[in-house]
Amino acid sequence: MDRRKLVYSILKELQEGNEPKQTDYEITYEQWGEIAELIRDEGYAKGVSILYADDSVYFVSLSSAKITMKGIEYLEANSAMARMYKGLKEAREWIKL
């Protein structure tokens, strides 16, 4: 899994008003929580909800998440990915490359 591509995909989907989900990417729920936490902690998006139980991810929701200016800057700084990114339907294969 390419974390940069995964972050790019999630931010791009949020920018387009979509709600990406863990099942869209064929990653574990723990990985999904780690990526959501990274996006939240780096300030790329606000409204990211993560709940923990016994030090593991229990719940992750991006339903209220909105991309921030810092997130938009991340997308712009990684514009080379924009040429290759075809959308959520093809994200699983793209992230593996």
Rank of each mutant, 00 (worst) to 15 (best):
E19S: 06
E73M: 10
D54M: 10
D55Y: 11
L6D: 05
L51E: 15
E13Q: 11
Q22A: 11
E30W: 00
E42F: 06
G43R: 03
E37D: 14
Y85T: 13
I95D: 01
A45D: 02
A77M: 06
M81A: 11
K86V: 01
W94K: 07
R83W: 08
L11C: 13
K70P: 01
D41N: 14
I95K: 02
I35A: 10
W32D: 08
L97C: 03
E90Q: 12
A91H: 05
A45C: 09
I10A: 06
N78C: 08
E13V: 02
S49I: 13
W94T: 10
V48H: 03
L11V: 10
G47F: 03
R92K: 15
Y58W: 13
K89C: 01
V48F: 06
R40Q: 11
A77I: 00
Y44P: 04
I39T: 09
I72K: 15
A36Y: 03
R40I: 00
K21V: 10
K5S: 11
Q22S: 13
L97K: 12
E93D: 14
G71P: 05
S9I: 06
G17L: 08
K46C: 00
D2Y: 04
L62N: 05
L62E: 02
D55L: 07
L11W: 05
K89G: 09
A77S: 13
K12E: 07
L51A: 15
S56Y: 12
I35G: 04
Q31E: 14
